[in-house]
Amino acid sequence: MPNPNTPEDPVAHPATLLRDMVRIRCIEEELADLYRDEQEMRTPVHFSVGQEATAVGVCAALREDDLVYTGHRSHAAYLAKGGDLTGMVAELYGKQTGCSAGRGGSVHLTDRAVGFAGSAAILGEMISVATGAAWALATQGSSRVVVTFFGDGASEEGVFHESLNFAAVHRIPVVLVCENNSYS
């Protein structure tokens, strides 16, 4: 579902935020059960259970044309940004109707219609991609913002430090969101 916020009402109602967090948790738990019981999903699946609040809170503050990039635990951010649930589920099953035409699986989701630019499996990979996208938007004079979500393990990668430094020096409109998932 697209972000219902407008420039006149930039903050979602707390009940809406709670509903979105519970919705994402229920979807993730159901998908986890199906993944375990059916054995029919055609991709390794990396769930973002416990990271719903971060994704919902950050995405509620974004405009529809702002961009989001994530690492491999991308479901919560994808759904919070308004990504199509049917397309995501079809992607997990390797269907042509999936959000990446059944070729990307759980870790390569995309829904450009709502500004979910993409996700990837390589640790920290999307940090530099998001920084580059934000730099491109800035050089075009755009007021859009780019957000990248990543786990705490990615903060140990050189690309994190390089991107943070580059963004600070050039005053790039990128928001780096580090989710502490206790892996690092």
Score class of each variant (00 low, 15 high):
37 D>Y: 04
48 S>L: 06
72 H>Q: 08
88 M>R: 08
50 G>V: 06
66 D>Q: 00
43 T>G: 03
34 L>C: 08
73 R>P: 01
95 K>S: 12
68 V>S: 01
95 K>C: 03
59 C>H: 11
75 H>Y: 08
88 M>E: 00
94 G>V: 12
30 E>Y: 06
93 Y>Q: 10
80 A>K: 08
52 E>G: 12
40 E>M: 10
84 D>T: 11
68 V>C: 03
82 G>P: 02
97 T>V: 06
85 L>E: 09
61 A>I: 01
91 E>A: 04
86 T>D: 10
28 E>Y: 05
86 T>Q: 10
29 E>M: 12
50 G>E: 03
69 Y>H: 13
51 Q>M: 02
39 Q>P: 01
54 T>L: 07
65 D>T: 15
64 E>M: 11
46 H>L: 08
50 G>A: 10
64 E>A: 12
48 S>T: 12
38 E>G: 09
28 E>C: 02
48 S>G: 15
28 E>P: 09
97 T>F: 03
33 D>V: 05
88 M>S: 04
95 K>Y: 05
59 C>W: 12
87 G>C: 14
39 Q>S: 15
66 D>F: 09
59 C>A: 15
71 G>L: 04
33 D>P: 00
99 C>E: 00
96 Q>L: 03
86 T>Y: 00
86 T>F: 07
81 K>F: 02
90 A>I: 02
93 Y>F: 12
91 E>P: 13
43 T>C: 14
47 F>W: 13
42 R>L: 14
54 T>Y: 00
62 L>E: 00
34 L>P: 01
86 T>M: 13
85 L>D: 01
90 A>P: 05
34 L>G: 03
83 G>N: 07
71 G>A: 08
99 C>Y: 02
31 L>Y: 06
88 M>A: 14
72 H>Y: 15
74 S>C: 13
32 A>I: 04
32 A>C: 10
79 L>W: 11
77 A>C: 11
90 A>H: 12
97 T>H: 10
80 A>C: 11
65 D>I: 06
61 A>E: 13
90 A>K: 10
29 E>A: 02
48 S>A: 15
57 G>P: 07
67 L>G: 02
36 R>T: 14
80 A>Q: 06
75 H>F: 01
61 A>F: 04
65 D>Y: 07
80 A>D: 03
46 H>S: 08
71 G>Q: 15
52 E>D: 02
94 G>I: 08
79 L>D: 09
85 L>H: 00
94 G>L: 09
33 D>S: 14
71 G>F: 11
82 G>M: 08
41 M>V: 11
93 Y>W: 14
84 D>Y: 12
36 R>P: 06
63 R>F: 07
89 V>G: 05
68 V>E: 00
59 C>D: 05
50 G>C: 06
93 Y>P: 12
36 R>I: 13
35 Y>Q: 05
48 S>D: 01
47 F>A: 13
70 T>V: 04
53 A>Y: 03
45 V>Q: 09
57 G>H: 05
42 R>I: 08
45 V>M: 11
94 G>Y: 11
96 Q>M: 11
83 G>Y: 02
62 L>I: 07
91 E>Q: 10
93 Y>H: 13
41 M>T: 02
53 A>K: 07
42 R>D: 07
76 A>K: 04
90 A>Y: 07
81 K>N: 03
52 E>W: 05
78 Y>R: 00
79 L>V: 10
81 K>T: 14
75 H>K: 01
